[in-house]
Design a protein around this nucleic acid. Structure first.
Lengths: 236, 236
DNA sequence: ATTAATTGTGTCAAGAATACACCATAGATT
DNA sequence: AATCTATGGTGTATTCTTGACACAATTAAT
């Protein structure tokens, strides 16, 4: 069997950007490193790809270690491969983008990793090029959520339309019209009315919906249109 | 300075998917390997990331080697990282997606690499997981061209609206209405009428347009809407 | 009962997308 | 030089979607 010349083997890192939503703000799961290198500084959760491990499995492992969750929404975001991005050694990092339901994570695991959920507007400076990674992820979240029904990944199984609206308002930092939002959402046919009401509310209880998962899978790659108008191409 | 434990350094490959358009069909630049491994079989153009080379620079180097072109449209597509994707050795491959003007490539370089422009519907079986990479790239081309003005990257500097239409028809394998297409294109404000006419045509000569590059850069990340309707989300 | 906060739904007007028809130009044919 | 044919350029009516906006219903607190 052929073998490649002995050159250019490189340390391959995996870094995970993990978004959650607490009902009000989009949050990031970050760790305050209690290990070297860069001990004491904030960073994304990461690790190295193992020799006998598929790339996606590596991402799954790292996500599971920190959150205790499997089968969360994950996708590749981008590879960061500048020569000097890690001063210790040439390291290429594959960045993964994950959306989780914030109240389902394993608080013990998060604590043991010295991790915390942090609002986007309060995020600390991160090590290496992790700030760029986060910037890129926020951009991607805005982009993708405008076109595909990924918002649901951040909400519990049953949710109300006002909750969904708050989520989109948080993503785009912009108020949305209740009536138009509701009409658009319902017209996708992705929501099923559970018949239950949200008992938490102090006033009128909103209807609880769930995802029509069959339809969701069918229609995932089709286009949606939730991007606020200001971000669309205008003819000016 | 900290150093990482001696483990999990991995061979990092770069593979390039290069699209062109000959006025009729979308074509891929593929190589018939005259070197090992997999000598004699078809594959994407690729190479290994060098120790002292930024990732994007590596992609640029490989594209330049094959086409003689610099500053072409390139973006990261996806990382392929299954353990057994390359039987010779664990290799993780970062796949890049490139669009070039087919008539500007360096024919000598292409020849010396034993490469050829091949229509999508005539593509041979490729080595390893390169077929999956191409499938993914075609999907991405359709996706991206529907939302962003990347089609121009496949056409010469001056082009006619009918040429542009043929390009989109090739990308989506579907006929488009001339009148609506033209109106939509012109309404983007991205086209500047050069005042010249296409002299190649046998009958009425079409107007030659060029990109308004300033506007193009400004508006690149805004959304467009050239996806044929059938691919959009419908409510049914 | 009244009030305040929140949820649910309807309507109208403007804009965009689609389907479709007519005219213009240029070279080839007679 | 008249006309035929292939292709390019533009206009319009209809339908659908979007955005702005108003009013009614529900619930708990007073």
């Amino acid at each position: 069997m052929y073998s490649y010349p002995l050159s250019s083997r490189i340390l391959l890192a995996i870094d995970c950007i993990i978004f959650g939503f607490d009902g009000k703000d989009i949050k990031l799961l970050l760790i305050k490193r209690n290990f070297d290198p860069e001990k004491g500084n904030w960073s994304l959760m990461g690790g190295f790809l193992k020799e006998e491990e598929d790339l996606e499995a590596g991402a799954g492992r790292i996500l599971y270690d920190l959150t205790g969750l499997k089968n969360v929404y994950v996708e590749q975001l981008e590879v960061f491969g500048k020569v000097s991005r890690d001063p210790a050694e040439r390291t290429v990092s594959v960045v993964f983008f994950a959306l989780i339901q914030i109240d389902e994570h394993d608080a013990e695991a998060v604590k043991s990793h010295n991790a915390a959920w942090i609002s986007l507007d309060k995020r600390p400076k991160l090590i290496f090029d992790h700030d760029q990674m986060v910037d890129r992820a926020i951009e991607h979240l805005r982009y993708k959520a405008a076109l595909h029904p990924i918002g649901f990944e951040l909400l519990p199984g049953n949710f109300t339309i006002p909750q969904l609206q708050k989520l989109y308002e948080a993503i785009y930092s912009t108020p949305l019209d209740r009536r138009n939002f509701s009409r658009k959402l319902l017209s996708t046919g992705l929501l099923i009315d559970t018949g239950y009401k949200n008992t938490n509310s102090a006033t009128k209880k909103a209807a609880l919906y769930k995802l029509d998962t069959l339809r969701y899978k069918e229609k995932f790659h089709a286009f949606w249109n939730f991007m606020p108008d200001a971000m669309k191409m205008k003819q000016t």
